[in-house]
Computed example of a mutant assay.
Amino acid sequence: MKKILITGVSKGLGWGIAQYFLNEGFKVLGISRGILEDLNKNENFKHLALDLSDLSSIQPSVKKFLADEGDLEYIVLNAGMLGEIKDLQETSMEDLKTLMDVNVWSNKELLDTVFTQPSKVKQVVAISSGASINGNRGWGGYSISKAALNMMIKLYAAEKEAVHFNTLAPGLIDTGMQDYLCGEVDESKFESTLRLKAAKGTSSMPKPKEAGVIIGKAIPKLIEYQSGDYVDVRKM
C-alpha cells in the first residue's frame, strides 16, 4: 500500500487532501494538533498529535511515528498559519517569529527528520500561496514566510536530487481562514480582500473536500515540472 504523510489534517485543505488519498487507497499518515473523528474511523489513517510550533518536539515525535512505515510516495507540507492581516510596521517581531516557525522551520525540522531515516521519499509538496509572490498590503508575515518556504524547497531540490520537490499554490479555498478574511478585515484598507469576498460562495472558492480532490489530482502531475519550482494549481 502506498503511503502519504500530510501535515495539518485536522481541518481545511489538509483534511480534504487526506480524504482524497484515503479514497484512492493510500495509507495516510496525518500530523496535526487535533483530529476529526471521521478520519480516525478509517483503518488506513494513522495520526500523530503534534504542535508544529514546538520545534524541539518534531524530531523525536516524527521519528517514532514513522519508525515502521517504510517508503513514502508523497509528503504534503500543508500545515500553516495566516496571522493577522495588518501593516508590517504594526506586526511584532514575536508574531513574525511564530509565523516563520510554523510556516517554514517546522517543515525543515520535519524534512530533516525524514531524510535521516532509511526509507525513501518520491515527492515532497509544500503548500504555498499566491501571497508568496503578490506582495499585497496587510499580508506581511504570511507573505514573507511563504516566500521563504518557496526558496527553502528550491534549495532542498538542489540538495536532494533523488526526491522531487515543489511548492504548490492551491488557489482560494473556503475555510475558516476565509471567514476571517471576508468578515473581519477592513477591505477599505486591505483591498486584496475584495477579491476574496467576491469569490466566497462561488466555484472559484471550493470547499475543503472539493479542494482536496483538486490538489490530490494535481500532486502526481507535479513530477512533470522542474524540481524546486513554485506552481499555481490554477495554471496547471
Rank of each mutant, 00 (worst) to 15 (best):
M1N: 10
G14Y: 02
I17M: 02
F21E: 10
L22M: 15
G25I: 09
V28F: 01
L29K: 06
G30E: 05
S32Q: 14
I35L: 12
N40S: 14
E43Q: 12
F45A: 04
H47E: 10
H47K: 15
L48R: 09
L50M: 12
L50T: 09
S53E: 12
L55R: 01
L55C: 10
S56W: 01
K63S: 15
A67P: 07
E69D: 09
G70D: 05
D71K: 04
L77Q: 09
M81V: 10
L82A: 05
L82G: 10
I85V: 15
D87W: 06
D87K: 09
L88I: 15
L88K: 09
Q89W: 13
E90D: 08
T91S: 08
T91K: 05
E94A: 13
E94P: 10
L96F: 15
M100H: 05
V102D: 00
V102F: 00
N103A: 04
V104H: 05
V104A: 07
L110G: 08
Q123Y: 02
Q123N: 11
I127R: 00
G130N: 14
A131G: 00
I133A: 07
I133L: 12
R137P: 12
W139Q: 14
W139R: 13
S143P: 06
S145Q: 09
A147D: 09
A147T: 13
A148P: 11
M151N: 12
L155K: 10
L155I: 15
V163M: 06
V163G: 05
F165C: 09
F165R: 12
A169C: 15
L172C: 13
M177A: 06
Q178C: 04
D179Q: 07
G183F: 02
V185I: 13
D186W: 02
E187Q: 14
S192P: 08
T202P: 03
S204F: 14
M205R: 02
P208S: 07
K209A: 15
A211Q: 06
A211I: 04
V213R: 02
I215R: 00
A218M: 08
A218G: 03
I219D: 05
P220M: 06
K221G: 00
L222C: 03
I223G: 02
E224T: 11
D229P: 00
